[in-house]
Amino acid sequence: MQDVRDALYIGHRSDGTLTRRPMSPHLQVYRFRLSMFLSIANRAAGVAAAAGSALGVCWLNAASKGPESFKKVQKVTRNPLGKLALAGWTLALVYHFVAGLRHLAWDAGYRFEKKEINEDGPVAVGVTVGATLVLLASIFGVAACRSRKKKKAS
């Protein structure tokens, strides 16, 4: 080793012998693990949640501007494609929430053993899928009930 920076990658084993520390993850040599997918998915979900939130602000803005602007937004939110986007935003928010709670637990020192992390991963997936489906069903259900009531009244 000639480069001094290489020295930073040298660590000691518990028996005192030297070892080369792992460098940043190389995706092409690592076997696929759920934990690594969940890790990058949390980041992707954060970005998607941010993009959706920016659109949510457009909804707020339209509501504050007046009925005509709001009608335009409703065209988007009542369109099947718009509904799909809303569903995607919901999924991103729910997963980012779930993964965020896991991160807070890890930071506090809980469930941070490798075994525990591997146990919790599928649970996080299940909770995310379940909560997203329940949320979407209730949101679209409430919306459908409301429009039916309005039709009866008019």
């Binding site: 009925p67 009608k71 949101i139 919306a143 009930c145």
Partner: peptide
Amino acid sequence: LRLAGAEQQDV
């Protein structure tokens, strides 16, 4: 959940 499908007036 309260506002799903709401009109502008409700918001």
